[in-house]
Nucleic acid binder design. Structure first.
Lengths: 193, 193
DNA sequence: GCAAATTAATGATTTATTCAAG
DNA sequence: CTTGAATAAATCATTAATTTGC
């Protein structure tokens, strides 16, 4: 936890036994179980794009039932999934940038588009309260109709968010000359939370 | 703190009285005092670019002496300052990308440059132990040669880091409508939650 | 069949843009 | 117009698939 010395921490070992059940394996990076992915995907399909801290926390807690997971994993998952879905769609429809109706755009970005390109031929704001519902659902998280069955996990819940990896690079062999290494995803990052 | 309702939370009010001493003013965003900026700038000049969590914590604590400040403020400050200094430098010297000796580049990026452009005419890794020194300095933070004088702050230390703003956008009026919403009603969709 | 070698996915970081408060 | 804050885009890096040679 100190500053230096922990070279390439990620290469270490830890009890990251998901799905397979092979305990004490490498713990390089989060490896979601199929259940976790399904849940996340469902939430995404339901309209969730950028979960709040609270939501991330809840989702994380819920998913920890199926295997090791941290809040940041959830955060990253949505970040990546959102971006890659957008990207995927872009490759398909080569429509003009101004005419696309990408609903993934966050408010600031959409607003900006409006301002700069005068675009939206169709009101992009006509809302659908889907996300709202999702939130509600999330709040009801704890109670589930189905008695879930955890594949075979021994250790679980490690929902702290203690910027691990990040430093390893910074203080690894190179010691980054003084310049830097970097930063944690937005707020979740700071360990002392 | 909940999910909805708090549209644009940041516009609220709170006791953010820094420097000026006007208590109970808007708490839109952090407004660093001159002392804080000076300290941060000094650290930057000393070579610090991307402080670690520990460093951020220490810096934040130290700066809270001069006024309200959160860890994230320190984080963002370095993020922005680094980027803007780089930007500034770019406008001045229009040197080829491959030839610039920007020490701000993170390891991965530098490595990548090496790989892709065969560039570095000069070993980019020849280290400068600046940050090392900075770290030392930071560790010795508590003791200062000069007896610091706090301008006039009443409330201080709010070093929690709870991603605020970020979510407000997600749940504001728009709610991201869903083109990706063909899917069935959430109920059953998320039933297994 | 089964590893080493490749390639495809995707988790995690970093940089670039943008929003908006003051 | 400066800059704190937030998000998107780019990219790095590791793990799982898949292919290939034996």
């Amino acid at each position: 936890m100190s500053s230096r010395g922990f070279t390439i921490k990620a290469r270490g070992l830890c009890n990251n036994n998901n799905g397979g059940g092979t305990a004490g394996t490498k713990c390089g990076r989060w490896n979601p179980t199929v259940e976790q992915v399904k849940l996340l995907t469902d939430l995404f399909k339901a309209g969730l794009r950028t979960p709040s801290t609270d939501q991330i926390q809840k989702i994380s807690t819920e998913l920890s039932f199926y295997g090791k997971i941290e809040s940041k994993n959830v955060f990253y998952w949505f970040q990546n999934h959102k971006a890659r879905e957008r990207q995927k769609r872009r490759r398909i429809s080569t429509v003009d940038f101004d005419h696309r109706q990408d609903t993934d755009l966050s408010r600031p970005y959409r607003d900006n588009l409006r301002r700069r390109h005068q675009s939206p031929p169709k009101d992009i704001f006509e809302v659908c309260n889907v996300e709202e519902k999702v939130i509600e659902t999330l709040q009801l998280f704890p109670l589930s109709k189905v008695e879930r069955v955890r594949p075979n996990v021994t250790a679980a819940s490690h929902n702290e968010y203690t910027r691990e990896q990040a430093y390893t690079t910074a203080f690894s062999t190179f010691s980054t000359c003084g310049a830097e290494m970097e930063h944690p995803p937005l707020d979740l990052q700071l360990s002392f939370l």
